[in-house]
Amino acid sequence: MPEPSDPLNEGARRPPLDRERPLEPEGMEAPPMWLWVTIFAAAFFGAYYMGAYVGDFSADPHYMYRDRVAAVADEEPVAVDGGQVYTQRCQTCHQADGEGVSGVFPPLNRAEQWVTGPEGRPIRILLHGMEGEMEVRGNIYNGQMPGFGRLDDEEIAAVLTHIRQSWDNDASEITADQVAAVRDAEADRTAPWTADELLTEERSTVPGFDDTPVADE
């Protein structure tokens, strides 16, 4: 059945202005009942929500979350995840498997003198970085290891413990107190370390922790 009148076809083939019909005045239908119900439901909900969450008109943005803010303040600090620090900070150079990049970034796995050696060395490397020639697993590297002194003691301890106990490595844990002790003792140091410096006894130990450095070589 054709539509009673099809405005789109009116005056077809005539220029645009001649094929328009006037805009008709609006109809006068009354709003349906369900619309009023919706409107009042929305208004009721609004009033309820306002009452429930108006927060006493307090200017404190945490007003409604004071318990939660307090709870967070009381919480035991979460242990830092060394593996996560490693993925974020070290993995790009030393790789996920700890094998480094041949000739450029030395391996951390089985790097006996450095990673799993006396605690003082890796701590110092992390705090201030390292540069110049060094030997790892029989290969010579000569690059620049950035310092990570801006990480806090917990983070440095966690990532060092992580690399000392990952892959084939199995050495003792490093604690935040040890990191703090070295940071304290080397407070004046800004330049990166060199291999020669770190291989001395003085730079291998953690002051106040370890008086019997492990013999190297």
Binding site: P31, P32, L35, T38, I39, A42, A43, F45, G46, Y49, M50, Y53, V54, G55, D56, F57, S58, A59, D60, P61, Y63, M64
Partner: peptide
């Protein structure tokens, strides 16, 4: 979740919900 007072945010949520009214009306 920002630093603005809660009541301000609450009022804006209430009126965001009230916007259902003009929208449904126009759609209808």
């Amino acid at each position: 979740g920002g630093p603005a007072p809660q009541w301000g945010v609450t009022i804006s949520i209430v009126f965001s919900v009230m916007m259902v009214i003009p929208v449904v009306v126009v759609a209808l």
